[in-house]
Design a protein around this nucleic acid. Structure first.
Length: 841
RNA sequence: GCCGGAGUGGCGUAAUGGCAGCCGCGCUCGACUUAAAAUCGAGUGGGGAAACCCGUGCGGGUUCGAAUCCCGCCUCCGGCACCA
């Protein structure tokens, strides 16, 4: 290599990018002679420009791909575009450029940026959700759902974003605000399309247990979101009416303590049972509840309020007449929208009972030990009974204790009483065991333009008719006025709306809502397996070969929405026999954000570090390596231009390690006897093999920051060796070869360049991953730490195979130890082989 | 309130029962240079002249030995939250 030539990434990176692309190095087919590895990074929304925050994600994915390919896997690494969605439509409204025009431009720009970062994809598998070739099959998925009874239309109170002028799924509402634009959402009664994800709630929950290569955080979030609780539904007849109020409770054992019922203000029976005397008060309360924003209403700080309907219900076990109230702390959307209030066993009911003077009965007597250990100042009713406002009956919510005042349940433990009362209720037809979920059905219709049309027509004769498969796709028309106005812009396009019924041929109207873009992204990983199939969404054989995704990488912000919808769709597709995996993503990695000036990079904040800038000034390898080195990849990290400069300096040092006549070797292991190496050769080879072990383990476990630091240590060792012995030794060649191989997945260009310059055959990326050699890594001399009373006092060099007796004798002979022994004898000596001697005096 | 996760030099971090601070940033000094940049070298937790002492959010505990394990707090981040 020319001595004077400097490292100029701009001169070498494009050359190798072109080579990887021209040689189709990462384009793959299903084959049986190699194990498969499906690597996937969440496909991006094509907003146009990528910054280093995005690049951390794609770099991680690329390292996985190149690493697993070197390890001999048949690696599929596809890329595509989540190209339907609101931002393009909103931009179109603002400046008149049609999304169908703008989006391909954005895709081209982003593709170029991915290319310049040296990211390698199988571009033959590229998909874009906006393409009719793709959304034809998204519509097919809708029909599959419809056929299986999982797609239905109903009028419901749904979340509406007044800014984006569309409905939102429950999952897209965060703290009462639109997940996308941040506007406060409101409730509207609308007829909408839903997918019955609740039917899969149990499977979605139970199968989480088997996803042991997912972060616990994500699994916990999904568990919370599904929110399964088991209990009982109990029927309370209303006095003087045919109506029966059904309540849901997780504590049916406390039924004998139910002294009133509470309905949500929106409960359908409210009007029917309210007495004339209470009509005015009830109406006022309902109005007031409706006017409140959900944020106000759901505040736990607020004092509980309610009003008596005037009606009474009968406690089915005691026969007691108990009043029926309405209160806004009961939610119409959860359980049955009605509860049995047990003030003695529930703090909310207790507060409510105290405020309105309702009766309180103790049904669970706590063990004396609990009361004693909680002490007199306890304020937590889940620990011990609490007497609020000096009332003589306490509230106590724990399961521990004995049933009292509960007829046949008296003396039982609450857990046993729970089973017993359910049996009694079921025997008498007054209730049943049941399970409820926090999870709601997935609202998939949107009143917006830039999405896949829902393939349904409405016929005056036949009613709701699914568009037959052979007539797909229902093409999204381009000549549309996309100003939103509360209904889909498609509704104003008569040429789209008016059609004929596929059933009877009579006049019909098309559904004008489009699908939530999360539908598009819930199955794209299946399409990648067989992206050009024109007959079916994907061939089951190919999907069965590639699925599941072995490594899925993306942002934790998708922990609930995208990841749960994808799991749901995969299960439905599996139930239909199209693929034989129940879970789409075997291993999940959620990477942290890169911040700049303490905030997420965004154009509006002006704190982005653009890809083009990084590539032009320091090169793709520096950008890649620094984004891996910046910190643990699952945590957020702050971008530092100075840190990136440091990484550029490191690559310059690596470059200079190859100055002079440095040759890489084909066999990366030792091809000579250990005895032929000098002691400093052996030291270098030891470092090489320790680094092979460290980097291999770290890349498997996604500890990229520590692999980079291990590689830096190796390069420092090579630098020292080179100064003493020059670069033309066998040991140095072996070190140089392994340095390039270990760095190749992370900094692919410089390694490819140096590999070729140093006589390497073929691409560095097609070489086998280096093997760790235990023998070469073994040390002949080790440093033994000597502690006195657990504190470091001395270090001695000893042969690696030193015996305990020898080590102990050497340690006791240390002058430092003698000083601390002060003439006495040690009380105790502990030897940890190969590590330390601890002397207790 | 409940459930997770995290608190270590000036900064990003490393060490998950055995040498606290690897690697890097920054900083200081030195070499090269007319000079600067680049590069290279030395140093860099605090105190102390040194021996040594102190030090991983706070308080206790287990252990020969604790950043790491246990108990009790504090702070920050994320999720859920009047969910019956």
């Amino acid at each position: 290599m020319e001595r004077e030539e400097r490292y100029r990434p701009q001169a070498i990176e494009p050359k190798w990018q072109k080579m990887w692309q021209d040689e189709r190095m990462y384009f793959v087919q299903a084959r049986e002679d190699k194990p498969k590895f499906y690597a996937l990074v969440m496909f991006p929304y094509p907003s146009g420009d990528l910054h280093m925050g995005h690049m951390r994600n794609y770099t991680i994915g690329d390292v996985v791909v190149r690493f697993q390919a070197m390890r001999g896997y048949n690696v599929m690494n596809p890329m595509g575009w989540d190209s339907f969605g609101l931002p393009a439509e909103n931009a179109a409204i603002k400046d008149g450029v049609h999304p169908a025009q703008r989006t391909p431009d954005n895709i081209a720009r982003m593709k170029d940026q991915l290319y310049k970062m040296g990211l390698v994809y199988d571009w033959d598998r590229e998909v874009a959700s906006m393409s009719p070739d793709y959304y034809k099959w998204t519509q097919w998925m809708f029909l599959l759902m419809y056929r299986r009874g999982l797609a239905y239309r109903k009028k419901a109170a749904v979340w509406w974003c007044p800014n984006d002028k569309t409905v939102l799924a429950n999952e897209q509402v965060v703290d009462g605000h639109c997940e996308r634009c941040g506007a406060e959402v409101i409730k509207k009664d609308l007829v909408q399309w839903f997918w019955r994800i609740t039917e899969y709630a149990d499977r979605l929950l139970d199968d989480l247990d088997a996803l042991d290569e997912w972060p616990d955080r994500v699994r916990t979030m999904q568990r919370n979101w599904i929110g399964r609780s088991t209990g009982a539904e109990i029927q309370f007849p209303v006095e003087g009416h045919d109506a029966v109020i059904r309540t849901f409770t997780t504590r049916p054992d406390t039924l004998f303590g139910a002294t009133f019922l509470v309905l949500a203000p929106e409960h359908p029976l409210v009007d029917e049972i309210t007495t004339p005397e209470q009509r005015e008060a009830v109406r006022a309360y309902v109005d007031q509840a409706r006017r409140q924003s959900d944020i106000e209403r759901l505040s736990t700080e607020k004092e509980k309020t309610g009003v008596h309907t005037g009606a009474y219900a009968i406690n089915p076990m005691t026969g007691t007449r108990i009043p029926v109230w309405i209160a806004d702390y009961v939610l119409v959307t959860y359980g049955t929208g009605a509860i049995q209030a047990v003030p003695g066993g529930d703090e909310r009911d207790y507060d409510f009972a105290l405020k309105y003077g309702l009766p309180i009965i103790t049904v669970v007597e706590p063990p004396a030990s609990r009361v004693a250990s909680a002490g007199p100042n306890n304020t937590d009713p889940s620990i011990a009974p609490v007497y609020k406002q000096g009332h003589d009956v306490p509230v106590y919510t724990s399961y521990e204790g004995t049933m009292v005042n509960s007829g046949p349940l008296d003396g039982m433990a609450p857990q046993d009483a729970k089973q017993a009362i359910i049996q009694l209720l079921e025997a008498e037809g007054k209730g049943r065991a049941t399970t409820t979920y926090r999870l709601r059905d997935w609202l998939i219709s949107r009143q917006r333009y830039w999405g896949a049309p829902i393939p349904i027509v409405y016929c005056a004769n036949c009613g709701e008719v699914p568009v037959p498969e052979e007539m797909l796709p229902v093409v999204l028309p381009l000549d549309v006025e996309f100003k939103p106005g509360g209904e889909s812009p498609l509704a104003r396009l008569e040429s789209f709306v008016n059609t004929t019924c596929p059933n009877c041929g009579g006049p019909a109207k098309r559904e004008t809502d489009t699908m939530d873009t999360f539908v598009d992204s819930s199955w794209y990983f299946l399409r990648y397996c067989d992206p050009h199939n024109e007959e079916i969404p994907f061939s089951p054989d190919l999907a069965n070969y590639w699925m599941p995704v072995d490594q899925y990488t993306g942002g934790v912000e998708h922990a609930i929405l995208h990841l749960m919808y994808s799991r749901f769709l995969t299960k439905v597709v599996a139930d239909a026999g199209l693929v034989n995996v129940q879970e789409p993503f075997r291993r999940l990695f959620t990477q942290g954000m890169i911040t700049k000036d303490g905030a997420k990079m965004s154009k509006s904040k002006g704190n982005v570090v653009p890809v083009d800038f990084m590539v032009e000034t320091k090169g793709a390898d520096t950008a890649r390596l620094f984004s891996l080195f910046i910190g643990p990849p699952d945590e957020d990290a702050e971008w530092s231009d100075q840190g990136a400069d440091g990484m550029f300096r490191f690559l310059n040092r690596v470059w200079r390690l190859f100055e002079g006549n440095v040759m890489v070797v084909d066999e990366t292991g030792a091809e000579r006897d250990l005895g032929d190496y000098s002691p400093s050769d052996r030291d270098l080879l030891r470092k090489v093999h320790l680094t092979i072990r460290k980097v291999t383990n770290d890349l498997e476990r996604f500890h990229f920051n520590t692999s980079v630091s291990a590689i830096m240590e190796l390069s420092n060792a090579m630098q020292s060796y080179r100064e003493a012995h020059g670069p033309e030794t066998a040991a140095y060649s072996i070190a140089a070869t392994n340095l390039l191989l270990l760095m190749a997945p992370m900094s692919p260009h410089i390694t490819e360049e140096l590999w070729h310059r140093s006589g390497g055959q073929g691409s560095v990326h097609m070489q086998p991953w280096p093997e760790f050699n235990e023998e070469l890594a073994a040390a002949e001399v080790i440093t033994l730490v000597i502690q006195v009373n657990g504190k470091l006092r001395d270090k001695i060099e000893v042969p690696a195979d030193v015996s305990e007796d020898e080590a102990t004798t050497l340690a006791l002979a240390s002058p430092k130890v003698q000083q601390f022994l002060d003439g006495g004898t040690p009380r105790h000596v502990r030897y940890v082989p190969g590590r330390l001697v601890n002397i207790v005096v």
